[in-house]
């Protein structure tokens, strides 16, 4: 076992978390779980940003994570409002039943 954790370990962890998130988007039919999976993928990208910021000794990566978190928060707010609106009209959040552009 190597004596110290370097950037490769973080890349591997981030890749695994990203794949789990992508798998969630592909497998689950519940729109809320889908959004959680998207959050998981954004989170794995953030982890990679911070790991590379530490590796390169730069602060810019952390600033970028700050922006990503802001965008993720805005995206979740709009997405959940959309889910609530869809649920009001269709009484379902199963994405297989949401197949019309017309409400």
């Amino acid at each position: 076992m190597p004596s110290a954790v370097d950037i490769n370990w973080y890349i591997a962890l981030s890749g695994i978390l990203f794949v789990i998130g992508a798998l969630g988007v592909l497998l689950r039919r519940n729109a809320i779980i889908l959004f959680m999976s998207i959050e998981l993928m954004l989170n794995s990208a953030n982890l990679l940003f911070v790991a590379f910021a530490r590796h390169l000794g730069e602060l810019e990566g952390q600033v970028l994570v700050f922006f990503v978190i802001t965008v993720a928060a805005a995206e979740v707010a709009v997405g959940l409002a959309l889910i609530v609106a869809i649920f009001r009209s269709k009484k379902s959040i199963n994405i297989d039943e949401i197949n019309l552009l017309k409400g």
């Binding site: 076992m1 954790v5 962890l13 978390l17």
Partner: peptide, 21 residues
């Protein structure tokens, strides 16, 4: 960080993600 605590943390993170899935 030492590899052992990192592996523990990573295992918890992956297990939580799989649990969510």
């Amino acid at each position: 960080i030492h590899p052992i605590p990192f592996t523990l943390l990573a295992a918890v993170a992956v297990a939580a993600a799989l649990g969510m899935l």
